[in-house]
Design a protein around this nucleic acid. Structure first.
Length: 701
DNA sequence: AGCACGCCGACT
DNA sequence: GTCGGCGTGCTC
């Protein structure tokens, strides 16, 4: 028997959430040779939890010597899962940065971004898992020898693409590459640039990380990469995988066996020992921001990770986020442009249809205007497809009684219940409650209750009625609930089994329709007057993307059209859209943002509070504000008063929020670090407060 | 967050 | 007398 190695103080990041007040790693006693990055079981209170051996934090970040527990009071670490190679130093720096920036504990974040199944394993089970993986890999390796990529397999690059690729490769050759913003129209061949850049990294023996905004978009991109890189190991990482798949794919990345990792925002934390390139496709997409728990932006973390690992980051978009655009204008990002569509195709002609020109007759539906129906009919006659875009699910957003003014309000939320005709339900899109549609007005008994407004279900019905013989189909969250149904419905469109496709933003993103020559946005005005300062940016990008669905087949591009029905055709947003002029739009938005002192010229944090009563939620934030004003660090910050959220009550919970504005990130960070402990204390005193959270760099205000 | 302890109401 | 309600407080 060998002697037990001498014990020492070991820092372990444990899975304890922020609310516990335990922010940094905890101290345990462990063997001398325990490497940082190793998973260990430790006792926390009375339970056994997973922890990750951490290093001593940087000067100033750590507790002072005299506040640490004496070694005599420390508990020993439990079993180490040392069959797994430790998480790298760079990986830990990324997690440390993310935890600090988004104001969460290191342990919470570190363990939340590991595959969930890893937490439930003991050393023996892990070893078995790794052995099984070895076997499978060996079998796969003998089966398919990596086929070299030959130039013949790839489409020739246009001159512009070649220049873009050269710029990317030049960056990759630098010691500390600058992030690149690949600004390319839909159909300009961005994906080909990703593929070529990835190819170069693979040839150097490096791994490539590709992020996409939605799970929906992973299969088609995965197919493209799989086709190009046959024989290479490609794995996907997203929340749609089974726990076992997720662990297997994560391990493949961590062990360096997966050469390409493709995934949604959580994949930004994938452990990759030989990372050589990060691609963030559709970098402007709001889905990159996590909306609960640690509210990180995977795009921003990707940029930070690139900086840490000294690898190039390629941010791609036709309508970059104004943050990224501003970075490019300021020279922090290298801008690379793709301004031509492949094959010389033109962008669809944008027609702004002025709704004011229609005669307004009472009770007559104007959404399907006569000219729009004519345009749709023209496509039908030519055997072409059309996409009608409406960002609202259901049949009608509300039911209404003419006699007593009753409305289908949700009993638990400050929102209407949406009428879904298909299953005759009234559903609240905020809390999810569902009720049968009443036969008569529940308030006065009037049998004549009517739907008000329209959603995709009703649009589908009205189109079928107005255009007899047309094959109308609808794709939205309701028609794609079942697994695989989105794929089969998209396939039906590709097969030509559909003439007119009705859909929400789900169909506006990414899907490559070949035969669509008309895209119509029938009611996009809502976002023009939203209280959220980012609403115009989102609308512009959504409409550009929707428009990009038309004319992808170069032969039909000339005849393709985007139809926008609006009451405000003179609005600057639509004017820029009509000219496909993202630059003009961005410039006017940035101008507005600068004069209003909004991002990217200011930095925001949002504190949200939920309580059983309006008072509980509001009083908490008011007290929080008072505590903030007492801090010297709040000097120069703008603390807005607490206000109810746009939907103030959800599932019987009252919601308030409060905005903090700072001139610099560092200032905001310093303030939050000092302030949050006070909020934890306040929460304990505030009765009826159920939850609160800080959102750094919030996307939706 | 878990998971204790702790101090008051309706049950065998 | 005890089972259990959820308020309060702690976890290296």
């Amino acid at each position: 028997m060998s002697e037990a190695p001498p014990s020492r103080r070991v820092r372990v990041a444990v899975e304890a959430p922020q609310h516990s007040g335990l922010t940094g790693p905890l101290d345990y006693l462990g063997p001398q040779d325990l490497t940082p990055g190793t998973l260990v079981h430790v006792t926390l209170g009375r339970r056994d939890v997973m922890g990750l051996v951490w290093d001593d934090l940087a000067e100033g970040q750590d507790l002072p010597e005299d506040e640490r527990l004496p070694e005599s009071e420390l508990r020993p670490v439990g079993e180490a899962l040392d069959a797994l190679p430790p998480l790298s130093d760079r990986w830990r720096r990324l997690v440390e940065f993310a935890a600090s920036y988004y104001q969460r504990s290191i342990g919470e974040l570190a363990l939340a971004v590991l595959p969930p199944q890893l937490r439930d394993l003991d050393a023996k089970q892990l070893q078995a898992r790794l052995k099984k993986l070895d076997k499978a890999d060996a079998a796969a390796a003998t089966q398919a020898a990596a086929a070299p990529i030959t130039p013949a397999d790839r489409p020739a690059l246009t001159a512009q693409q070649q220049a873009a690729l050269d710029a990317v490769l030049e960056l990759a050759g630098r010691e500390a590459p600058q992030p690149a913003l690949l600004w390319g129209l839909t159909g300009s061949g961005k994906t080909e640039i990703y593929l070529r850049a990835a190819e170069a990294a693979l040839e150097r023996g490096q791994q490539v990380l590709v992020l996409v905004p939605e799970i929906n978009l992973t299969p088609q991109l995965e197919a493209r990469f799989a086709e190009r890189f046959a024989g290479h190991a490609i794995v996907s990482l997203h929340s749609g995988l089974t726990p076992a798949q997720r662990l297997r794919h994560w391990l493949a990345a961590h062990l360096g066996r997966a050469q390409l990792v493709l995934g949604t925002r959580l994949a930004v934390f994938a452990s990759m020992p030989r990372l050589g390139l990060i691609v963030v496709d559709e970098e402007h997409d709001p889905s990159y921001k996590q909306q609960d728990g640690a509210r990180y932006s995977a795009r921003d973390l990707a940029v930070y990770r690139g900086h840490l690992e000294k690898v190039p980051v390629l941010l791609g978009s036709a309508t970059p986020s104004l943050e990224s655009w501003q970075h490019a204008l300021g020279g922090r990002y290298r801008r690379i442009d793709l301004t031509e569509r492949i094959g010389g195709g033109a962008l669809p002609r944008v027609r702004l249809f002025d709704m004011n020109r229609l005669e307004r007759k009472k009770g007559v539906t104007t959404t399907l205007s006569v000219p729009l129906l004519d345009a749709l009919r023209k496509r039908l006659d030519r055997g072409e497809q059309s996409l009608v875009f409406l960002n609202r699910r259901g049949y009608a957003p509300v039911l209404h009684c003419d006699q007593c003014n009753w409305k289908s309000d949700c009993p638990h939320c400050s929102a209407h219940q949406v009428f879904h005709k298909e299953d005759r339900t009234l559903r609240c899109h905020h809390c999810g409650v569902s009720a049968r549609v009443p036969r008569a007005c529940p308030s006065c008994g009037n049998p004549d209750i009517a739907p008000l407004g329209r959603g995709t279900e009703r649009l589908e019905e009205q189109l079928a009625l107005a255009l007899p013989g047309a094959r109308v189909a609808r794709i939205d969250a309701d028609t794609t609930k079942l697994k695989g149904s989105l794929e089969s419905q998209l396939a039906a469109v590709h097969e030509g089994d559909v003439d007119i496709l009705v859909g929400t933003q789900m169909v506006a993103k990414g899907h490559d329709f070949r035969r669509i020559t008309l895209v119509a946005a029938v009611n996009p005005d809502g976002a023009l007057f939203s209280s959220d300062f980012r609403a115009p940016e989102r609308l512009f990008s959504l409409l550009m993307q929707a428009g990009g669905r038309a004319g992808r087949d170069a032969a039909q591009a000339a005849a393709s059209e985007m139809w926008v029905q609006t009451w405000y055709p003179e609005h600057a947003l639509y004017q820029s859209l009509q000219k496909h002029d993202y630059e003009a739009f961005a410039s006017s938005q940035l101008h507005e943002r600068m004069s209003a002192n909004l991002p990217p010229f200011a930095h925001l944090a949002l504190v949200r509070a939920e309580g059983r009563s309006v008072e509980a939620a509001r009083d908490f934030l008011t007290a929080a504000q008072e505590a903030a004003q007492a801090l010297p660090l709040s000097l120069g910050l703008l603390l807005y008063p607490p206000v109810p959220m746009a939907v103030a009550r959800v599932a019987d919970s009252e919601r308030f929020q409060m905005l903090i504005e700072a001139g610099s990130r560092a200032q905001l960070q310093r303030f939050l670090r000092a302030w949050l402990p006070e909020l934890h204390a306040l929460k304990r005193r505030q009765k009826g407060l159920t939850r609160w959270a800080v959102d750094v760099d919030p996307l939706a205000i």
